[in-house]
Write a protein that binds this DNA or RNA. Sequence first.
DNA 1: TGAGGGAACTTTCCACTGGCAAGATAAGTT
DNA 2: AACTTATCTTGCCAGTGGAAAGTTCCCTCA
Lengths: 181, 181
Amino acid sequence: MTDRPYHHGNLRRVALAATAEAIEAGGGPAALSLREVARRAGVSHAAFKHHFGSKPGLLTALATEGYDLLADALAAAGDDRVEAGVAYVRFAAGHPAHFEVMFQPGLYHADDPGLRAAEERAARALTAVLPDSADQDARLAAWSIVHGFAGLWLSGALPADPGADAGDAARPVISLLTLAP
Amino acid sequence: MTDRPYHHGNLRRVALAATAEAIEAGGGPAALSLREVARRAGVSHAAFKHHFGSKPGLLTALATEGYDLLADALAAAGDDRVEAGVAYVRFAAGHPAHFEVMFQPGLYHADDPGLRAAEERAARALTAVLPDSADQDARLAAWSIVHGFAGLWLSGALPADPGADAGDAARPVISLLTLAP
DNA sequence: TGAGGGAACTTTCCACTGGCAAGATAAGTT
DNA sequence: AACTTATCTTGCCAGTGGAAAGTTCCCTCA
């Protein structure tokens, strides 16, 4: 029918990008349609079965990619605690589809080994910026404040200027949490 | 066919309860099925049209109920800032379906007047416990840390004892955020 | 009392969804 | 060249949300 080649070549990568686009365009992961993603990627809806198994499988891959991207972003932010938090928020605002899926484990296979590994890598990157003396509560407080800000930002609950940078908005807020050195 | 009366009587209330149950039982709002809720409530799937209009309409009602419950919980917690935060987390853990829907505005009609009113009532209850000197950043920090803890708790990202109380777990974490009086 | 009118609910239909099974096509491998 | 495996399509199924039309009930008002 079409002159498009039978074998796509790099469906996996394209499918993940198309999935993120569809989620961002169409109102969250709940409204995601496999067939819509397939249309964007230019393949039939059944093409994903071989690569991802099922819809939860597709979202598992997206969440894994998200944890990898988050770990990279945190590592690139350096040692400063506040700047790492800013990077966390910036990641959420810059990759809303990944972020939303990551923290709704009901959507994917939360016990997938590859996913767990990426998750732990991100958790280590997050803990790395905290002072050695930080106990579990301090770690949770730091994680909570950046995660909460990110979640509120994404849900539109914050009265923000359109076009404002989420990271810049988060910096003074995050700075208010001072942990004992 | 059945001896069940044609008119349900209080479908609206029962439907909301059944919706919350279905969301909590079936893995999040994304997997929610109107027909499943209808089966739980003992009516046909089209019965909701009259009361809620559509699926987003049903979830609008659930979110509104959620904001009302949250405002009540915050008001009942008194003036202490930490205890209000504990109440926030406890609400999220106690009403996960409401909470998850509330902060995914893509699922419902976020501009519904009744919803907006309930939203503002909850926002006022939250601001009421903060010191008068608190500026916007302090307000956001307080909201972020409790909201973040609640979100992480619900997503299962926290290494918690099964059966542990979310509020008790949150108290020492929330206490770490000290705002200038 | 009983007749109209609207509220509450059901039945039926439609386009769409995710998943499965079977087949087609391409790319290696020997 | 023959065989095997990976990749993708077509065709099908039960289940979904929504619209349209019909049914049952309640409530008001003469």
